[in-house]
Amino acid sequence: MEPLLKVIGIGSPQGEDRLGWEAARSLEGLDRVSVVCLDRPGPSLLHALEGETAVVLLDAMETDLPPGCVRLLRAADLITGGDGLSSHELGVAGTLALGRALGSLPGRLWLIGIQGRGQGGLSERERAAAFTAVRRQVQGLLQEQATGAPPGAKARDRHADPANGQ
């Protein structure tokens, strides 16, 4: 059966920046989900989104949330006007803004951010809890896809995953 959801892990080999990759790989084998990992894709992220209808981006994030916390965001929550952005090494938000301007974003697009710890990295327990939370979020989105629920029905607002005590 065709995948209903494409998961893209974004990151690099360095430290906590690997979290997006590792979380994505933890989803491999999930029914009707395809998984790819990209190394700091910059604007090439748009190529990976092209022709897709439902995509989840997984990336490490830096917020004031506790380490290991997981957040599900709609892509629209991330997109800014691009003020002050480098036009060269675009980050995820800038790239999505570019994609929106070009009209090339998938109809259903979410980002799941994972809060890292910085120095020392997440503990095994924090990491396992975070990846469990990611899996739960993705399964929820998959369910939405299967039942034809409106895009991002469960991600209308920024929220932390309850599994992380937030």
Binding site: P43, H47, G81, G82, S86, L98, A101, L102, G103
Partner: peptide, 22 residues
Amino acid sequence: DNAIALAGTHPEVVRRGMDLQR
């Protein structure tokens, strides 16, 4: 100001760049 603003007005120009880059 940047490529995003450019894409808003001239999407075909930026799309050409993205296609060639790909």
